[in-house]
Design a protein around this nucleic acid. Structure first.
Lengths: 407, 407
DNA sequence: AGTATATGTTCGGTGTTTAGACAAAATCAC
DNA sequence: GTGATTTTGTCTAAACACCGAACATATACT
């Protein structure tokens, strides 16, 4: 039951019905391709005539195209299959991380068109912008046959202003209120869209074309790396909030008297479950203390710790188990606050999921308000799926499929 | 940018445009009454002819009525004023609380039609149902001239199942999985809708007809009494979640090693800022410990504590200030998680707002991720506005004004 | 009394869904 | 091979909605 805001609404015009049905048809093609006009009409519960008109409009706009004829199931005329037209357009996704920056080219369906490339991140934003521009131009030249680039989506590990042009704060990069979108767009000559990386991950799950992923209801993506970022999707829409900072469960406390967090506060969930937190637990040292931060720069990474834990090292396993417990306790806050249909978890720690899952689940159950909450679906998203990159791509590819604003 | 769920969508039919515009017109009458057809057309940015047709449809259905002619501003024909037709319908709101149960009768606009009545709550649900039925019938007989009752909305201090028929858990009443809606509806012969009281409060703010209340964006209602309940509104819609338990920020921890909470966990925000928490802090005793809970039953209430604090009693002021600080720290979690446009606070503690506001604000700023977050609007909702009762009423009165489901 | 102006209604025009008929294409039965 | 059956896709008329403009009505100003 949604309230119509009497100060900001959209009246239905003569073409509104068509606009709505056109987008539904487009989304059905996207979700079910290859699909015929007749099946489309069946799915939409409209006459075939209407589906035909919608399809011809989408064809005229070049959003879909007619492929080969399909096989007739029983007898009868063979259907003409329809596909999203991704032939002459591509999208570039960029994932800027503290250590390295990744680039991926996909089609409009988000299908990978080549290998992921990467280079070391230069934390000087101007230098990085220039190098990114150079490398993206290079990549686009390499894939010239895939056609023009519709846009570049960039996931950054920090907060992005609501207008989407500036990075307000990215602690791991040392950025504070830097301009990124416009310089990059100017350097390449293609529209750029930037977004917080956890929000991008949430978008990746929402806009995936994988058929085994259900997108109904609310969902939360928890991205665990050096920090902890979360993106919340409510009713098919990313929750942004007043200042585009909604969904920061990483800085909801487990204990306000806990360790100091990178955000300046104490006892944030992040300060218990980030990779740095796990490593510092392993080393028995407080990484938040001033002084030489040799762990961050050391060659011993979270992957090494997980490998040792798998090999049976008690110290590693202990650190990991503690993280698992805190992870579950923090997830309980998310469940109590959002009551999502499912939670996605990404980050290096997911490689240890088989080790820690029971502990996470028990801790979750311990603090959820209802027993139902304790059974909330948890899905692990492996790094190979590149959720940040696919989310960055969705920033560009998804708007064409979005629902029209109505009422 | 909302995604269309390809497994659950609504195609626009021939009458969909009309349905949308009809609801917009109805909401504009609700928000701006009295209003003329011409002004309606102006607000909707449609031709007067369309507005006229929409109005005549609403008139036929009896949702609005034509009142007296308004005064002409300059020269020209005088406008016929339109109003929401509440003349022959009323709504009953019920607020069940641990100590007393309150009843209020309103019209469809939520305007109070008589005084709030109340009686002592009998915690036996069957006895309470019978007494409620008897009293509501009595009240409706007293207000017979206001016409038929459209429904009864009930706010309960506990969790309600998604289907809305049962109270799953109401700790202060000692209820666990009790049936309330159907027995009450059967006893009175009028439809009943029940909802968690904090969610009801959130609905009350969302559906208020007061013109000084802005409802755009996200908002959170925090209700502080014996427990702490919260209701979250995202994009004009109450966030319910998978099991109708979303928005329980009261059980997000401040410190997982903190005092035991009524929910069984430890260190929940509720265990720091509820009235019981404040009182126990005043008495220097842990109310969660087993044994004679003389504070709950004692005659010294939170109101008395606030009165003493106002009179300058250091001990009371100390307990109150601690609560204020924890209140702000917990609000920071809400701001970080939801980034709402505004937060509403209700409960007895609001009578001490002038005392505690600076402390709350400072604590909030201390833990919010951005400086913007620290400036989030906080509005106090005094008890005299009866947010629970008005929310209970909205359960019945609001659905007629809700936006149609589309796309 | 005449003119200007605002409100509310009416009517033809255009765009969209709805319902159903029809042509095209493929399979099955004989 | 031929005709019946079935499925796909197109087309047309009807119903319904917004769009635009003209028209009648009512009030105030000159």
């Amino acid at each position: 039951m949604r309230k119509i805001n009497p100060h900001d609404f959209k009246v239905a015009r003569r073409g509104t019905s068509r606009e709505i049905n056109r987008q539904i048809a487009l989304n059905l093609v996207r979700a079910h391709q290859p699909i015929s006009r007749a099946d489309l009409a069946l799915l939409m519960n409209v006459r075939r005539g209407v589906a035909s008109l919608l399809v011809s409009e989408l064809l005229d706009e070049g959003l879909i195209f007619e492929g080969a004829l399909g096989e007739a199931v029983g007898r009868g005329r063979r259907p003409t299959f329809l596909y999203i037209d991704s032939r002459q357009r591509c999208v570039v996704g960029v994932d800027i991380r503290a250590s390295r920056t990744y680039i991926l080219v996909t089609d409009l369906m988000g299908r990978q068109l080549g290998a992921v490339s990467s280079f070391q991140t230069n934390k000087d934003v101007e230098v990085l912008t220039q190098e990114l521009a150079r490398r993206i131009k290079q990549v686009l030249a390499d894939y010239k046959d895939v056609g023009a680039c519709a846009g570049i989506g960039v996931a950054v590990p920090g907060m992005v202003d609501p207008a989407g042009g500036r990075v307000l704060h990215a602690p791991t990069l040392g950025w504070r209120d830097v301009s990124l979108r416009d310089p990059l767009a100017a350097a390449i000559g293609i529209p750029v869209h930037i977004e917080n990386s956890a929000k991008a991950c949430a978008l990746a799950q929402l806009w995936t074309t994988r058929r085994d992923v259900i997108t109904a209801g609310h969902s939360v993506f928890v991205s665990i790396s050096d920090g902890v970022g979360t993106g919340v999707v409510v009713n098919g829409e990313l929750m942004r909030g007043r200042h585009n900072t909604a969904g920061e469960f990483g800085h909801v406390p487990l204990s306000i008297d806990g360790p100091r967090c990178s955000c300046g506060a104490t006892g944030c969930w992040e300060s218990y479950v980030s990779n740095i937190a796990t490593l510092s637990r392993y080393f028995g040292r407080d990484l938040s203390e001033p002084g030489p931060r040799d762990i961050e720069t050391s060659t011993f990474t979270i992957e090494d710790l997980i490998a040792r834990a798998r090999a049976g090292d008690a110290k590693s396993l202990g650190a990991l188990n503690s993280t698992a417990r805190y992870l579950g306790l923090g997830l309980a806050s998310i469940v109590n606050a959002i009551d999502p249909a499912r939670i996605y978890i990404g980050g290096e720690i997911t490689t240890a999921w088989s080790l820690i899952e029971p502990i996470v689940r028990n801790a979750l159950r311990e603090r959820t308000l209802t027993e139902f909450g304790g059974t909330t679906e948890i899905h692990v998203v492996p790094a190979e799926e590149h959720p940040r990159l696919r989310g960055a791509v969705a920033l560009i590819a998804a708007p064409a499929f979005a629902a029209p604003m109505v009422a």
